[in-house]
Write a protein that binds this DNA or RNA. Structure first.
Lengths: 335, 335
DNA sequence: CTGAAAGCGCTAACAC
DNA sequence: GTGTTAGCGCTTTCAG
């Protein structure tokens, strides 16, 4: 059996309340008593039972991050940054995955799970309005991403349209004539995919350029494998394609492999721009031109929104749009 | 306030015990009562309070995975596989990071946190014997990795020595004369780094080959950036280096970039082998020859060990060694 | 400054 | 089949 507070209290000859007060930094305890208790805590190896604390109060000091997939590096990088930021205020991050299966998704979103956190940051990629709408209104939640989501939540939108527009405009400006969009499509609602597709369209309209025929390569998953095969085949079918805007950096890496599979060179024959600015982007060859989503900003704002919400559950929800910027590297040609 | 079990009980005109029995699938409940309760649960949007359940019994249905870093793709892939496997038995994975800071590490390992899981899979990279030794013996824990760890835990060792030996032997066999080890070193104890370094040495001894001068490139972190700079500089200083065994695939990707920075070609001038067989390895150019750690096997065994331990906390600890194999791709020359 | 009483929501054990 | 009792470890409240 683990040591409990009353074990410590008994050993110290005080009541559990005094132990609790010491451990929670309440002021009204004499220095002597405090020290005695602290020593005993050490000696007995006492550690608080978070389940018990949570049952009674709230505050576990842990924040949940729900991401669609553990194995997409974008979310790994996001989690790492978030974790660092939370550590600064003595809090702790646990990451869960929503997208493994339909059941797992529901499980991850069930109040039961989310309840165990002081607050939750939820990447909504792959989830829909109704999934989210089941979340109990009083739980502090910040939504990350697009889609048509219940407005009652705080939310941070990435400027997907603008990012995609920047990426595509850059390709057109560097002489591309046929910019295919790897991983595009239109789901009807404002998903990440739909919005980036919209940006790709917008960039063409801005310049009065026609969209390339069959310009959208749909992908079953935003994975390197699919992208690679799809891009290779497209290039073999249609030599007029001279640029790929990839919906994510992962897809871009796959696309680059596909371009080489087709016997073509990056950027001489086919230029490429990605989206995410993963750590990896700087180290592939050639280094990947991409859109930087300013994760540092996103993470900072997410924590700020969450803290405000934890502080006051009734406050009006906020909806922020994160900045994006183009990072020019070697997969696009110099001006 | 959230709906509780007694709300449901009151609405159904039964006691909380009956609700509890229904929700836990206990057999002695009439079909009619069961259905009524289930309907009410739906209608009232009841969800169990896991903290309360945990306080009383155990079983939260969640397993914790503690990894050194969220942003190392190896752990992302591991987590994804583990998550998939656990989902098959209706369980759920939460991932925490141990390595962000000294405090965060202690926090992640504190019993308080670990307690909230039915069991914990703990990657011990970066942790030492005493960190782990503080874990309460009764908590079901499976250790992943090397190092000198308390034997009382179930543990899965990766065959690091053999993997590194295979990698290095492959390079030597393909004509490499000077195989530097990017990310090597000897920490004195059986860390992943020490063991892979040992394998690199062993391969040389096996063939009666001398170790290259200054053959170990130490790295502050196993990151692409560091590796890239370090490898580039080494190649510029010493043109006799014609192969790199990189301690991880991440390091290998950095090394490949460094080789190109030095104006050399992979694999014509410098061959490369990595370790991890990340999804990425197949899609870089050229595709990366690497050591496959058989994650599927590791994950499967880890869950099996954990389940056995959850079932019987007193059973003798097991220590397994995972198989490894070489995957030959384009960064090494054909025979 | 310290403590006694009450109870958070749930389940184990047993009674009916 | 269903209900009663007791209590998990902690914090809230309020009394001293």
């Amino acid at each position: 059996m683990a040591t409990t507070m009353s074990d410590v209290a008994r050993a110290a000859g005080v009541s559990v309340m005094t132990v609790s007060n010491v451990l929670n930094g309440k002021p009204r305890v004499s220095a002597a008593t405090r020290q005695r208790i602290l020593d005993l805590v050490d000696e007995l190896g006492y550690e608080i039972n978070l389940s018990a604390r949570r049952l009674r109060s709230d505050r576990t000091g842990s924040i949940g991050l729900i991401v669609p997939r553990f194995d997409h590096p974008y979310f790994g990088e996001l989690a790492a940054q978030l974790s660092r930021l939370l550590a600064a205020t003595g809090r702790h991050l646990a990451v869960e995955q929503s997208d493994a299966s339909k059941e797992a998704e529901l499980a991850a979103l069930s109040m039961a799970r989310l309840q165990t956190y002081d607050g939750v940051i939820l990447s909504v990629v792959g989830l829909d309005h109704d999934d989210i709408d089941r979340i109990r209104p009083s739980l502090p939640v910040v939504l990350l991403g697009e889609q048509n989501m219940p407005r009652r939540f705080d939310q941070i939108h990435m400027d997907n349209v603008e990012g995609a527009r920047l990426a595509t405009a850059h390709l057109l400006e560097r002489g591309a004539r046929h910019v295919v969009l790897a991983g595009g499509g239109d789901e009807g609602h404002a998903s990440m995919m739909t919005l980036r597709t919209r940006g790709w369209r917008a960039a063409h309209e801005d310049r009065g350029a026609a969209l390339p025929p069959a310009g959208i390569l749909t992908l079953e998953e935003f994975e390197m494998d699919c992208a690679r095969v799809r891009v290779r085949d497209r290039l073999r079918d249609d030599p007029s394609v001279d640029a790929v805007f990839a919906i994510t950096d992962q897809v871009a890496v796959g696309a680059m492999a596909g371009i080489r599979d087709a016997g073509l060179r990056v950027p001489q024959d086919v230029q490429v721009v990605g989206f995410d600015n993963l750590a990896l982007a700087r180290h592939v060859t050639p280094a990947l031109t991409t859109i930087d989503p300013e994760n540092a900003w996103i993470v900072e704002q997410a924590v700020a929104l969450l803290d405000r919400r934890i502080d006051d559950r009734e406050k009006d929800p906020e909806h922020l749009v994160s900045p994006v910027r183009l990072v020019e590297r070697g997969t696009t040609r110099p001006r």
